Simulated assay, not measured.
Amino acid sequence: MDSGDDTGSAYNSQVESAAVDARTFAMAFDASPTPMVVTDPRLADNPIVWVNDAFVDLTGYSRSELEGRNCRMLQGPESDRRAIEIIRDAMKRQASLEVELRNYRKDGTSFWNAMTITPVRNEHGELVYYYAAQADMTEKHALELAMKGTNDELARQVNEQTADLRAALEQKTALLHEVDHRVKNNLQVISSLVLLKARRTPQGEARDALQGMAERIGALSMVHRMLYSAGDVTRFNLEEFADDFMSDLTAGIDPERTAVSAEIEPISLPAAIAAPLALMLHELATNAVRHAFPDERGGRITISARRCETGLRVLIEDDGIGLKAGKPNPAGFGCSLVEMVVKQLRGVITWHDPVPGTRVEIVIPLQQDAPTGSASASAGRAS
């Protein structure tokens, strides 16, 4: 046998081997559990030219009913027009794509068809087929729909519970505002009664004590008036609080003789400390007004409050005669009251006696629980 015969035998062996490989691939695709279909874009309307058994089982059509027809035969009334346009556009561009489309079986039942469509080209790069591997995603969509229904129901329940909580909170807020309003009115009545008694009491320690008590009750009334008008029943703005306090403090002061100024940061504080804080500021400020400038002496009082590393730092200063030069008042208990309130607030108070004047420095820790003890019952929020 010459070399020509050897070459021909080799070629025939390659052809036979290629044919065997093709048949092997065809048998593998036929037996695959993945539905597969091949269409021929060179023929009119790009018809189906091959399907495997899994595709036949998926659609319910026989091979003879499928071959020669376009895949649009599986579309129906609920097939997404947008997805169909995406398929058409990809085929115009001869591009691969992945898409899900609602298709219909022969018996009319629908299923969600996930398709991976791939153009197949020959050795010259020419488009000869479209190959599509498919999967039934109906159960996945049913699960998604069930989960959506569950999520919608959960969202509805959450919205209902949120609405109930909001209504309960609004009711509680309205109740607390009403409590503040009533406490304010009651304290104003008590303050008026005490003042009335003071006016009918002869001048002396008893009358001074009654007037002082009426003013302290008035300071507490001012707190509940402010809390009643505030939007948040749990906290208050220190700057707004100070504005009300300063208005009450300076109402009866001659501004030509005594100047009172305040530098207050807009700090949000727990409503529970509003009453003790008001008592403390009232006691220190009114004491400065009354005792720092005797004999028609003029002067200045400065009140400041700002954050510090340990909490809230309050400073009350005057340029009056000072602590040591003041007249002792055996019946007075202002200093004791201030120290009691500062202790109640878990703070620290420091008395300074510069020359001239008096300086009181108070540091109160923030982010604390409501004040405890007997004093908080009278100074805290009514509930």
Rank of each mutant, 00 (worst) to 15 (best):
A95Q: 13
N103F: 01
T138D: 08
A132N: 07
E67L: 08
H124M: 05
S110D: 07
N122W: 02
A95C: 04
K92D: 05
W112L: 11
I84L: 08
Q134C: 05
A135N: 13
K140P: 00
I117D: 00
M147Q: 15
E98F: 12
R88K: 14
G76P: 00
H141T: 04
E67D: 04
L143E: 13
T116A: 15
Q75M: 10
T118H: 02
A133V: 09
K106E: 09
Y129C: 02
Y130M: 00
R121T: 11
E100W: 05
R63S: 08
K92Q: 10
A142T: 11
D80G: 03
M147R: 15
R82Y: 06
T109N: 07
V120S: 03
E85R: 15
S62C: 01
E126G: 03
V128F: 11
G68F: 02
K92F: 06
G68P: 04
T138F: 10
K140T: 09
G149N: 14
K148D: 13
M91H: 12
F111A: 07
R88P: 01
V128Y: 10
S96V: 06
A83Q: 15
R63N: 06
A133H: 04
L74D: 15
E65Y: 14
Y130H: 00
H141G: 01
A114R: 04
N151S: 11
R82D: 11
W112K: 03
A133I: 07
L127C: 00
K92V: 10
A142C: 08
G76I: 06
C71T: 13
A114D: 01
N122Q: 00
G108V: 05
